[in-house]
Design a protein around this nucleic acid. Structure first.
Length: 104
DNA sequence: ACCTTGACCTTGG
DNA sequence: CCCAAGGCCAAGG
């Protein structure tokens, strides 16, 4: 993917408010609507290489599972922000934490 | 052009 | 909870 796509993804991730989260697929829908390309996997690819520069822990899978490799740090950040978690604390409760660029 | 590989998603066993 | 299948998009060999 080119810089424009990477930029679009990172910009959107930066807009996610503390205590909220977005799934790879949800991000892909927003970006795809404006750039006409990409998909969940592309968003994952961007986060894998450039995610360190943004609040990456607010990006999770559709079912609320934390990004592979950094679950530990992610749980710490999420807890600090008071993000709605599942009972076991291993997943984000997307029913309550899901955020969209338009609605709060 | 063909095949493989991913921080994916949904459905179904 | 784990696994497989199909669908998905792009990069790299």
């Amino acid at each position: 993917m080119d810089d424009e796509y990477v930029e679009a993804v990172l910009t959107l991730v930066e807009r996610i408010p503390p205590g909220r989260a977005m799934a790879y697929g949800a991000i892909a829908e927003v970006i795809g609507a404006q750039l006409r390309r990409g998909g969940p996997r592309m968003v994952g690819a961007v986060m894998a290489s450039f995610g360190a520069a943004v609040p990456w822990w607010r990006v999770v899978t559709a079912n609320g599972r934390l990004p592979p490799g950094n679950e530990v740090a992610a749980r710490r950040h999420l807890a600090a922000e008071g993000t709605p978690m599942s009972v076991d604390g291993d997943r984000v409760d997307m029913r309550r934490a899901a955020w969209r660029p338009d609605g709060p």
